[in-house]
């Protein structure tokens, strides 16, 4: 299916959802046009998963965050972003969006998922996550940095923090009971695996690495070494 308009955005369906390709030079125009397109055909878009192909546009976190919120008001999920701008890619990753590599204009279907040593793909974040940042991924999440109070990580599978974990973490949201949460310093404000919410024992030494996992529906902790 191909919806062509005389405008600067192109909307195209593919197996996992919709790709919106923009030729706008200004983010404001791009955003306005996408939103107005969606408002026009609300029923068509509702419940859809969207990939934005933004070309060379540079988009900052606040702008993309507000776009994501506006889309979600319309029942549309902003799922991934394709861009030639490193800033935009960084922004998207910070918001927990997928950023597929998209060389040339080849079909997205040809893309192979990145494969890690244990056979699962994972989202790698190489920075400290400050308050107000939310990272969501259906895959595992690996953070090389701290997770500060007020930041949250939501993962379908496991979460590994190579740094200090002090924010909120929820793993195993896809129902995977094997999911674990590990961190070098283990003081989360909230910790969930699947349906279980952890009671974090006060006696756990703050400075030691810990690993949390599910055993018979209850979260257990053990030193992680």
């Amino acid at each position: 299916m191909d919806i062509k308009t005389e405008s600067k955005i192109r909307i195209k369906g593919y197996q996992d959802g919709l790709i919106i390709t923009s030729n706008h030079q200004e983010w404001k125009d791009c955003q306005e046009e996408i939103i107005s397109q969606i408002c026009e055909k609300e029923n068509f878009f509702r419940g859809g998963k969207i990939t934005l192909d933004l070309g060379n546009l540079t988009v900052h976190a606040a702008e993309m965050g507000s776009m994501r919120d506006k889309l979600s008001d319309k029942g549309v999920t902003l799922w991934s972003v394709i861009s030639n701008s490193p800033t935009t890619i960084k922004t998207a990753q910070m918001l927990g969006l997928d950023t597929p590599i998209y060389p040339g204009k080849s079909n997205l279907r040809d893309r192979q998922p990145s494969v890690s040593a244990i056979g699962d793909s994972a989202l790698l974040i190489q920075r400290t996550l400050r308050s107000g940042i939310s990272i969501q991924s259906e895959d595992s999440i690996i953070v090389l940095g701290d997770v500060n109070p007020g930041a949250e990580l939501l993962s379908g599978k496991s979460i590994l923090v190579w740094g200090r974990l002090r924010g909120a973490v929820q793993a195993g949201l896809s129902g995977e009971t094997e999911s674990v949460i590990c961190a070098m310093v283990f003081t989360p404000t909230l910790l969930r695996i699947g349906e279980a919410v952890a009671d974090i024992p006060a006696k756990m030494k703050k400075s030691k690495p810990y690993k949390a996992m599910l055993k018979d529906g209850v979260i257990h902790f053990e030193p992680w070494d």
Partner: peptide, 18 residues
């Protein structure tokens, strides 16, 4: 704690605006 957490948020926004 509350002031530090808000400061952390502000620093995050400053960083994301480069």
């Amino acid at each position: 704690v509350s002031a530090v957490r808000d400061a952390d948020r502000v620093i995050g926004l400053v960083e994301s605006e480069q």
